[in-house]
């Protein structure tokens, strides 16, 4: 306020009075700060409500050796207090680290394949051709199929008397009966194939929208200057698509790490532990071996690892690409 202007005392008192009256209303929606807080408050509260208790309960259980089969309910867990022996055990538990490694292996291979396939198929769909709309719609169907249903269909698919073996038999001209899901390596391949099948369409959609949005005049200029297709791809298309590619990889990677439905329905993590991902591992510990405190400790370890990964992985998402394409 400009202090040099003399304000009549009576007016000033009036203004102060009005201000005080206004301030009295705590829940004043015309105050922007109150309004802004009340917009985000429900989300904050719901988030805290859903996280606060489970988090602490999880830490509490993980520091004991309580499980439902040891008697008493979980509130009595302090009787089995053992100062985090579970965590020491986790650090030495080969199965846990193997499951973690396997999860990243499946996610890595699947996402890489999805990306390469998605980009390749996007190039096929770049120009107009008759029937494009139909093929395009058909390409999108897998990602909308409920994963539980897809897992079931792929389980059928990979049976020893299933359609896949029948197709291979037709191709090589002699009976082919491989029990895909009963062999370590082929079970892994089967899981990855199912995952790639379900999510390549997403990569395809993202890549296609990126390719369509590339500036055409630059491409034309490159063609005029005599660039080969490979050069155009390597020095023009790839750098311009880079932000989109990174986002697509991050998103898919972060979803692929959570993989559960497909593996659970196809192999249950088997044969033995050959396809056991981290979610399946925790499921088995908690609900088949019923070692809840150990599962809780494993969950806390995952939580720490994922928080560290998240803060790096999510960075590309936080500065949204405004119409990169």
């Amino acid at each position: 306020m400009d202090r040099n202007v003399a304000i009549p005392a009576i007016v000033e008192r009036r203004v102060q009075l009005v201000a005080r009256l206004r301030r009295r209303r705590f829940w004043d929606m015309s105050d922007v700060r109150v309004f802004a807080t009340s917009l985000t408050a429900p989300a904050q509260i719901v988030l805290l409500f859903i996280i606060m208790f489970p988090l602490l309960a999880e830490v509490y259980i993980s520091l004991t050796s309580w499980t439902p089969t040891r008697g008493g309910d979980w509130t009595q867990a302090y009787r089995f207090w053992d100062w985090g022996r579970n965590y020491v055990e986790i650090l030495r538990d080969l199965a846990f680290w193997q499951a973690l490694g396997r999860t990243f292996l499946i996610a890595g291979v699947a996402v890489a394949l999805e990306f390469l396939l998605g980009l390749g198929i996007a190039f096929l769909f770049l120009d107009e051709f008759p029937g494009k709309r139909v093929f395009y719609a058909l390409m999108l169907v897998p990602m909308m199929i409920v994963p539980a249903v897809a897992g079931y269909v792929f389980w059928l698919f990979f049976q020893s008397n299933g359609p896949l073996n029948a197709i291979i038999s037709l191709l090589i001209g002699q009976p082919f009966t491989l029990t895909w899901l009963a062999n370590d390596v082929t079970a892994m391949i089967a899981v990855i194939v199912a995952e790639v099948w379900e999510w390549t369409p997403l990569m395809f959609l993202i890549m296609l929208s990126g390719l369509v949005g590339l500036p055409e005049d630059q491409m034309r200029a490159a063609t005029m200057l005599g660039a080969t297709s490979w050069q155009k791809f390597r020095y023009l298309v790839l750098p311009m698509l880079k932000p989109i590619i990174i986002i697509a990889l991050v998103i898919r990677g972060m979803e692929a790490v959570k993989i559960f439905d497909m593996v659970y329905l196809m192999t249950q993590g088997g044969p033995a532990q050959a396809t056991e991902t981290i979610s399946i591992y925790m499921y088995k510990i908690a609900f088949q071996q019923v070692r809840w405190s150990y599962a809780a400790a494993a969950a806390m370890t995952i939580l720490v690892i994922m928080t560290i990964l998240a803060s790096y992985a999510l960075r590309p998402l936080q500065t949204p690409q405004r119409e990169v394409a």
């Binding site: 985000t40 989300a43 904050q44 988030l47 996280i51 208790f53 489970p54 988090l55 309960a57 999880e58 259980i61 972060m254 790490v257 959570k258 559960f260 981290i278 979610s279 925790m282 499921y283 908690a286 809840w292 599962a295 809780a296 969950a299 995952i302 939580l303 994922m306 928080t307 990964l309 998240a310 803060s311 992985a313 999510l314 998402l317 936080q318």
Partner: peptide
């Protein structure tokens, strides 16, 4: 808030399902 919200999506649901 925005980070916690994104982070929530990254955890395997299996990790918080017991509590």
């Amino acid at each position: 808030l925005a980070f916690s919200i994104l982070q929530l999506r990254m955890f395997p649901p299996m990790a918080i399902v017991i509590p």
